[in-house]
Write a protein that binds this DNA or RNA. Structure first.
Length: 585
RNA sequence: CGGGGCGUAGCGCAGCUUGGUAGCGCACUUGUCUGGGGGACAAGGGGUCGCAGGUUCAAAUCCUGUCGUCCCGACCA
């Protein structure tokens, strides 16, 4: 391709509304243009990259035995009503009516559609297992679209769905897909982790997220320094402390801490580390009574001062809950937030308490005195509070409810936890029968009986992968494309070609030769100055650059520069094709 | 949904306080020079100042409404 026929549309200035590097660079390099909030057009250069992601994804899907289909983006409400998601899905679901006033939505996902397709097309167990996939535009009416195509309202997704007679078959395909995803991200040349994940609202049990590692990622993931354990921080288990609780050595003492409310304030005021301060959170749990009515129960949650509550874990134990309001805390404890703590033994108060493992292992600690302006020091669980001894702790009183922190032991016993940020680009689920049961998608089994199929689903955010790749691979000059994502492999940059006929001839010949060698080359035949040319090629992230000039023609050489190299190297003109071919393997 | 910011040329911005002929940089067009890291000079083209009302002799500027857009908000004991 020649730049005179393939406009680059680069811009020097950073767009005002782009926050993160990938968004800024995608605009500056001329990959995308914004149409409206969360809606982007792909320019020719960006589309080439997008197509590469699609191509690699398709190759691996085909290898995994998946069959490509294409389902409508516009979907009738009836199918969504069958699974109940028409009501469950919030305003994120882009709903609309057709001219006959019938309800439709723009699909954010295609479980309903594929399940409908499968129940009509698959009749016998002999046709199973089967996996369909598609590359389609999806719509989510995000509350707050941001970060360019990273979180947009319209985006391209590869989604695959598998159908099975039994769990073993589902597990087998899931494993194949797991491997296919690993292959895809390896081929894309991205640093990634597959992490154990919460399957969230889509339902089902087993689930992994694939994260591209990048400091600006929205998700925190925890992984082991020594094993391949990796989990979403929400999911990562914090093991109980191994060391035993130290025996009490201090007497309970009430001290004035006027105006000191937060852990950090109290820590500084009293000169104790946050590890020695108990953090007490007040929540209101919602439970169903025997009459099936909602009733509210007040709880105190105890954490070590340097830890944070993991709400996902707490919800698993307590079900529905919310944080108590200041008024509710006042009403129950006669105390303002900032000074609350576990009720002391002789207070006569009995309040439901749930402590984290590491909180119950504390001794001689500081906590709120349930008296505004006062804390207690020298606190010890058994001697001073109603909470039971460590010997007979029950599930309801002590559990893992905190977020893991760096340095925690890995849950699999190997190594320590390290935290990293990731961008979720893929997610695989074992859905089980959630959709197939709701939509009565069954086959005739070996015994001649109808049997509901099991399903798996597997998604990759194609457009998000492009942004994630940039987020992970860029410098102050621009994008640094991994080899398999680059819109072009090689930039051919002649110096002042318009002034030298022999350079023009040589450049044109080299351009032809590179193309003949099967190399994707971008020939910069614009009449622009050298610096302008180099800056453009670096901004758009072409991995390899060939510079040809009269100087080199005199000595029979061309110059080569890798995208991140500091120095140019001279290559004999005759060797350049072989040299590049070796680079491109 | 709450709080805040911003809508002026393709992009980035000034002008608004204190109403009086719409400006700057980049980009674009033409020409001359220049020619290995986003050139210089000269001459150009391009804007219903988001939209709708209102105040005024006069509104980008003041008032009201409206739309768009961006940021912040979900860990506080």
């Amino acid at each position: 391709m020649r730049t005179t026929q393939f406009p680059l549309n680069t811009v020097k200035e950073t767009p005002a509304d782009a926050e993160i590097a990938s968004h800024q660079l995608m605009i500056r390099a001329g990959l995308i243009r914004k149409l409206a909030a969360g809606l982007y057009s792909w320019l020719p250069l960006g589309l080439r990259v997008l197509r590469k992601v699609e191509k690699i994804t398709r190759e691996e899907m085909e290898k995994a035995g998946a069959l490509e289909v294409l389902m409508p983006a516009l979907q009738p409400a009836e199918l969504w009503q069958e699974t109940g998601r028409w009501e469950q899905y919030g305003p994120e679901l882009a709903r609309l009516k057709d001219r006959h006033d019938r309800d439709f939505c723009l699909g954010p996902t295609h479980e309903e559609i594929i399940t409908d397709l499968a129940r009509n097309e698959i009749k016998s167990y002999k046709q199973l297992p089967i996996t369909y996939y598609q590359v389609q535009t999806k719509f989510r009416d995000e509350i707050r679209p941001r970060f360019g195509v990273m979180r947009s309202r319209e985006f391209i997704m590869k989604d695959a769905y598998s159908f099975h007679l039994d769990q073993d078959s589902l597990q087998a395909t899931y494993d194949v897909m797991y491997q296919a995803y690993t292959n895809i991200f390896n081929h894309l040349g991205l640093k990634f982790r597959a992490v154990i994940a919460d399957s969230g609202s889509i339902g089902g049990a087993v689930s992994h997220e694939f994260h591209v590692l990048a400091d600006s990622g929205e998700d925190a993931i925890a992984f082991s320094t020594e094993s391949d354990y990796a989990a979403n921080v929400e999911q990562a288990a914090a093991l109980p402390p191994q060391s035993l609780r130290l025996s009490p050595s201090e007497e309970l003492d009430k001290i004035a801490t006027p105006g000191q409310k937060s852990i950090s304030e109290v820590s500084e005021f009293l000169g104790v580390t946050p590890q020695k301060i108990l953090k007490t959170l007040a929540i209101i749990q919602t439970v169903k009574t025997a009459m099936n009515e909602d009733t509210e129960v007040f709880w105190l949650l105890y954490l070590r001062g340097d830890h944070e509550l993991n709400e996902v874990k707490a919800h698993k134990i307590l079900g529905e809950f919310r944080f108590a309001t200041d008024e509710e805390i006042e009403g129950k404890l006669n105390c303002r937030p900032g000074y609350i703590g576990p009720p002391v033994k002789n207070s006569g108060q009995v309040i439901n308490g749930l402590a984290d493992h590491s909180a119950i292992a504390m001794s001689d600690f500081v906590c709120g005195a349930n008296d505004p302006g006062f804390h207690l020091k020298g606190c010890n669980w058994e001697s001073d509070f109603l909470i039971v001894s460590i010997a007979d702790i029950s599930e309801r009183q002590v559990a893992d409810i905190r977020k893991v922190v760096e340095g925690d032991p890995s849950p699999d016993g190997k190594g320590e936890i390290t935290l990293a940020r990731g961008i979720e680009v893929g997610h695989i689920f074992q859905l089980g029968s959630k959709y197939s049961a709701a939509m009565k998608a069954g086959v005739i089994n070996e015994g001649g009986k109808n049997q509901i199929m099991l399903m798996g689903c597997y998604g990759i955010g194609i457009s998000r992968v492009v942004a994630a790749a940039i987020e992970q691979n860029h410098d102050d000059k621009g994008i640094i494309w991994p080899a398999n994502l680059a819109p072009f492999q090689v930039a051919l940059c002649p110096m002042n070609m318009h002034k030298s006929e022999r350079l023009k001839v040589a450049s044109e010949q080299l351009y032809q030769d590179l193309q003949a060698a099967g190399i994707e080359v971008l020939f910069d035949d614009r009449k622009v100055r050298a610096g302008f040319m180099f800056s453009d090629m670096e901004l758009i992230g072409i991995p390899h650059c060939i510079i040809v000039g009269d100087r080199g023609l005199d000595t029979g050489t061309v110059e080569y520069k890798g995208r991140t190299a500091q120095e140019n190297i001279e290559i004999p003109f005759a060797d350049i094709i072989d040299f590049l071919k070796a680079k491109l393997v």
